[in-house]
Write a protein that binds this DNA or RNA. Structure first.
Length: 276
DNA sequence: CCTGAAACCTGTCTGC
DNA sequence: TGCAGACAGGTTTCAG
């Protein structure tokens, strides 16, 4: 479930409570338990376990799709990848669930559990947030990102627009759902070359990205398949997972192609291959 | 620089 | 019922 709106929803819940869960702000750490070795990306296990003890949760934030748990002198960074999820549990605690990969035990008896069926998720404990975040591109909501700058950046590359939007070093936070939804909203075909977009199209696309992400955040993100997180944005999808169904704008049948190895959904009428 | 394929993993669904 | 194959909200690495 991990694109910007879902990560943002989780971060807000960890910080302020919500989704039926408690805030972790101010909690003191008793221990960190690595249940699947490869989930810990950095540092080594013993160093990690020693360094995390006695730290307190000062703040929780988001950078792209990374969850940033500020421990004061260090940061615990979590990336959920494809199937990761976090939950806060209060005492009395039960056994860890199947697919739990990491447990952060607090001194008050509660814990933060990282569950990740596919084992792609990763955590880092770093002094500065630099290490895994240094290649992240601009946040879509950064006010520095104007239409002019976006247009300029698009024209520095010669890449299929869908793949470029998925590139986290170009813009941080979009994934497969929100690229498809944003491109449809902007009326741009997913395989258009980035440097072929006009200034007007760049403006439309940036506006579409922000509107789509904002609407999803308002609905607590999207919940699909068997992973239910209380989000509702899946009910507002225009093209994602709507192959063969009518476009909500023009009625044309939504098509599915593969772009950069990712399933891609679009309306051939609203998103023509040429400049629109 | 750009594209595609493969790898890392487990689970679900579809079709024969 | 069984089984192969496709597919899944992500990212990295490598070949051409």
């Amino acid at each position: 479930m991990p694109e910007l709106p879902e990560v943002e929803t989780i971060v807000r819940a960890l910080k302020n409570g919500g989704r039926g869960e408690a805030s972790i702000l101010g909690k003191k750490i008793k221990s960190g338990e690595i249940l699947w070795q490869k989930t810990l990306e950095y540092p080594g296990r013993s160093e990690f376990e020693a360094a995390i003890v006695d730290r307190g949760v000062m703040d929780v934030g988001r950078r792209g799709k990374f969850i940033d748990i500020d421990l004061g002198e260090s940061h615990l960074l979590i990336h959920l990848r494809m199937s990761g999820d976090l939950r806060v549990e209060l005492p009395p605690l039960s056994e860890a669930l199947p697919h739990d990969r990491f447990l952060l035990n607090f001194k008050d008896g509660s814990r933060l559990a990282f569950n990740d069926t596919r084992k792609f998720g990763r955590i880092w404990l770093t002094q500065s947030t630099a290490t895994p975040l240094k290649n992240l591109g601009i946040d879509p909501f950064d006010e520095v990102l104007t239409t002019d700058l976006f247009f300029l950046n698009l024209h520095k590359k010669k890449k299929q627009i869908k793949s470029l939007l998925l590139d986290q070093s170009f813009i941080a936070g979009l994934g497969n759902i929100y690229t498809d939804e944003s491109l449809h909203r902007a009326g741009i075909h997913p395989i258009r070359s980035s440097n072929s977009l006009t200034l007007q199209e760049a403006g439309r696309l940036l506006q579409a990205i922000r509107a789509t992400l904002n609407e999803s955040i308002e609905r607590n993100g999207a919940s699909i398949d068997w992973v239910y997180r209380g989000g509702e944005f899946q009910n507002s999808f225009r093209v994602y997972q709507r192959t063969g169904r009518p476009c909500l704008i023009c009625g044309t049948t939504i098509e599915r192609i593969v772009v950069g190895q990712r399933g891609t959904h679009f309306c051939p009428q609203c998103q023509p291959e040429g400049v629109g």
